[in-house]
C-alpha cells in the first residue's frame, strides 16, 4: 500500500501506508529542524524584511523570536503525531497515524521548512530541482535533493488537505 492521506468519517486525518522508509524519512524532519541551523539557512528562513535598517532591527527583536517559536511548535506537533504511529490493522506491513485535521497546517509547515533547510544548506538551484532523478549522484548533496523531492510528494498531500481536496 502506498503512502496516502485520507480524511476519516470523524473528521480526523489518517496518514497511512507508512513503510519503513517513509517512517525513517518523516521522523527525520523534526530532528533536522531541531538542529542549530547554519547562517545560510537562517538567512533563507528569516530574510531581512526591508532595506531600512530600523525596520530590520525591530523585526529581529520583535518578530524573529515569534517566528521561531511558531515553527518549533509546528515540528514538535508533527513529532508528537509521529510518536503515535501504529501498525495498520488492515495492512500489517505498514504503519499509520491518525491526528486532528487542524494538525495539517503544522505538518505542512514542518515539511516545507525541512525542504527549505536542505535546499539552503546545499544552495540548491532551480536547475538542481529540475534535474531528473536518474541524474542524481551518490553524494550527500544529491541525497538531500532527492529527499526534497520526496518530501514535496508528502507536502502536496497536505496542501490538498488544506484545500479540502482529499476524501
Amino acid at each position: 500500500m502506498s503512502l496516502h492521506l485520507q480524511r476519516l468519517a470523524d473528521g480526523n486525518l489518517c496518514l497511512a501506508g507508512v513503510d519503513e522508509s517513509w517512517r525513517h524519512i518523516l521522523s527525520s524532519v523534526p530532528v533536522l529542524l531541531a538542529e542549530p541551523q547554519p547562517p545560510a539557512v537562517r538567512e533563507r528562513l528569516l530574510p531581512k524584511p526591508s532595506s531600512q535598517e530600523n525596520i530590520n532591527r525591530d523585526w529581529r527583536e520583535l518578530v524573529v523570536p515569534g517566528l521561531e517559536a511558531l515553527w518549533r511548535t509546528n515540528y514538535e506537533l508533527m513529532a508528537a503525531d509521529l510518536g503515535r504511529l501504529e501498525k495498520d490493522p488492515a495492512h500489517g506491513e505498514s504503519w499509520r497515524v491518525v491526528f486532528p485535521a487542524n494538525h495539517a497546517a503544522a505538518w505542512l509547515s514542518a515539511l516545507n521548512q525541512a525542504r527549505l533547510v536542505m535546499g539552503s544548506r546545499w544552495n540548491v538551484t532551480e536547475a538542481d530541482m529540475n534535474r531528473p532523478a536518474r541524474h542524481l549522484k551518490p553524494t550527500e548533496r544529491d541525497h538531500d535533493i532527492f529527499l526534497i523531492h520526496l518530501l514535496a510528494y508528502v507536502e502536496q498531500m497536505f496542501i490538498d488537505a488544506e484545500e479540502g481536496n482529499i476524501q
Binding site: L45, P47, P49, S50, I55, V63, L67, S109, Q113, L116
Partner: peptide
C-alpha cells in the same frame, strides 16, 4: 504591509516590503 510580510514569512515565503 508589515503584517503581511510577517504572515508570508510564517509560511516561509521570501517576503519583503518596499
Amino acid at each position: 504591509a508589515e503584517h503581511y510580510v510577517h504572515v508570508l514569512q510564517q509560511y516561509h515565503l521570501m517576503a519583503i516590503m518596499e
